[in-house]
Design a binder for these strands. Structure first.
Lengths: 103, 103
DNA sequence: TCTATAATTCGACATATATCGAATTATAGA
DNA sequence: TCTATAATTCGATATATGTCGAATTATAGA
């Protein structure tokens, strides 16, 4: 899970899929951030094979889903995993909130 | 940041420091989870040198703080970093919350 | 059916990481 | 000052990871 996000290129891909709309806004149904593999790698400067490898890692970690659509393979965030991740840190943070305030 | 959490042993150390009290409870001032290096490695089955290395990595990533106290070096969670991490995923998750509900 | 594009698989290789043991440093206490 | 304990540093090493290019597969369209 964290291993999948530990590589800068993979984190970048993850972020691109996460930030589908303006921060704080809910993604509308048809505004879903579905991007094809090539698109995700367009500003990444890695070979296609490397890109494919990273996408696969993110998928294996359960962070993204993918589906072939013609020549393209579309990717999107796996919302449940994102939710679990969010809940995990929220819980951890709650216990330490009073400490953070103190500085 | 995520690289620091990507190693199972380091994640374990991080979790030990995070879970200072019952989930959902606020750590009281004097209940702060401060643990010395050796203590953190006691159920980890790695050499002292390896443990030291991992602690250093967590520190370099800003996830923990440390201070020498006599023979021991005490470690604790860096609450600000935990807060930022929590906020990051909370924001990301908010945009995808409606998707998660759909399944 | 042929061609172009998107993506994946595979093998090779350089670099990064995790790990250890030995030596060293810091400190407490006898 | 000597000894024991906690921790760190250092060098060595095995394994994991990121990367590439070439070959392959999947699909759309001419």
């Amino acid at each position: 899970m964290f291993k999948a996000l530990s590589n800068p290129n993979r984190l970048q891909i993850f972020l691109q899929l996460t930030q589908c709309c303006a921060p704080g806004t809910l993604c509308s149904h048809d505004d879903l951030n579905v991007r094809c593999v090539g698109d995700l790698g367009s500003d990444l400067d890695v070979a296609a094979s490397t890109l494919s490898h990273h996408i696969k890692e993110l998928h294996r970690a359960g962070l993204i889903s993918m589906r072939r659509n013609g020549q393209n393979v579309e990717c999107w965030i796996e919302p449940q995993t994102l939710h679990r991740l969010s809940a995990f840190f929220a819980t951890a943070n709650q216990e330490h909130e009073n400490e953070a305030e103190r500085s």
